[in-house]
Write a protein that binds this DNA or RNA. Structure first.
Lengths: 238, 238
DNA sequence: ACCTGAACACCGTTCAAGT
DNA sequence: ACCTGAACACCGTTCAAGT
């Protein structure tokens, strides 16, 4: 009945700990990337054989769950200054920068909503601010999930390969240029919009794209608090 | 100088084609899931040895790019009825349902923005509707990217394992219940919000979460067209 | 031009066996 | 209780060799 996943790993002495596994996995991830992250390498990092890990962890998936929370260990909530909108924006910007700062973090975290203690700490804080801002309990819960999915999804695009041209030199800026040339080179009669917007589609930096999406989302949330600007189809009560 | 990735694979006869590879990969994906999708299995599907694939494709990444576009082959744009908001909503709902309908589709597509011909067809159509709705070229381009990232990111959470408890029986509804119990079981003095909102955090269906996010986003986009409800920090011009 | 055989250097996971 | 040896059934990729 005890809460699983707490920081309490017991007073076990030097040997392997779930926390030690998570930290070792993080070091391997930072050094070799997500494709180089294997049970054997994590074991070697701990001076142990791969089979030993299976005493502490059911399988690699579970190790990745631990790693996911370890990735959030040094994440910090923004200062409690300004209005809710500024604080929420800062939350998302920091979360994005945090993920971008860890190699392949988005690929590890993606679709893994096992809430470890470090993530719970942040959620607790964020939910408090949302309630204070005046959002209903139901909306606060929805918003917390929504922002998490939004940032994770976005960083995944950002951190992933732009395509198979990744491995090659193509410095991401070149890749974008190449895509732009492909777009403007399309037959204009069947793809008039893609040709016309080739520049608009390829020019914006990822920062600009993220900010754009974030501000739209914040506008939408603001409408929840202001009954005048409510979306159609969403009744004011509930 | 010719546009890469068009449907033109030349008049090559029975032998392997990039399109044949993509279709075979799709069949393997549907049958075995993303973890069972190997070069060797795709080759076997085509009655050929794994090494043969490397004549048509640089590596597995490139095969996944082809597969990504193949996944979009039977996607359909919504009917051209109603206002822009309804059409955009329908676009997102359909895209989500489309991805959910193909096994592990989000995991394959995630972070892979190599635009194949099938995706380009949809983008062309969507961009046209956005421009007709009155969005600027720059905004239309941003919105198209944003919606894609939003839906992909969301479905990734939805289609991925809820945690390491995936493999086990835990029927996702049970898993949610378990998470709920964990949350309400947290120490109330350090996690008051998580305890109070345990139900709100775990009750909503994925459909409800998606709809919530989508309507917020659409509200934010509507504000772009209506100068009265503009977000702070975003100057009216540009 | 296109495909194969054979090999290299890896994987995750299991399980009897050790201590 | 915790770790190892050894094996099983796989991987992606390369490359000389075939046709």
């Amino acid at each position: 009945m005890a809460v699983e996943g707490s920081t309490d790993d017991g007073p076990s002495q030097p040997g392997l700990t779930r926390q030690a596994l998570a930290q070792a996995a993080l070091r391997v991830l930072e050094r070799e990337g997500v494709n180089g992250l294997s049970m054997r390498k994590v074991a070697a990092e701990l001076g142990v054989k791969a089979a030993s890990l299976y005493w502490h962890v059911r399988n690699k998936e579970e190790l990745l769950d631990l790693l996911t929370d370890e990735l959030m260990a040094d994440a910090e909530a923004p200062p409690r200054e300004g209005d809710w909108r500024g604080q929420l924006r800062e939350y998302c910007l920091r979360y994005r920068r945090h993920l971008l700062g860890k190699r392949d973090a988005a690929k590890v975290v993606a679709g893994r909503l096992a809430p470890g203690p470090h993530l719970l700490r942040l959620m607790e804080d964020q939910l408090g601010r949302l309630r204070e801002a005046g959002f209903s309990d139901a909306d606060a819960a929805m918003i917390s999930y929504l922002l998490g999915a939004f940032v994770q999804g976005f960083v995944l695009q950002e951190q992933g390969p732009i395509s198979a041209s990744e491995a090659m030199g193509a410095s991401r800026r070149e890749a974008a240029t190449t895509v732009g040339e492909q777009l403007s080179g399309l037959p204009q009669d069947t793809f008039p919009n893609l040709v016309a917007l080739a520049g608009d589609l390829t020019d914006p930096s990822m920062e600009a794209r993220f900010s754009f999406g974030l501000e739209r989302l914040l506008d939408g949330l603001a409408a929840l608090l202001d009954p005048d600007v409510r979306s159609e189809g969403t009744p004011p009560h509930e």
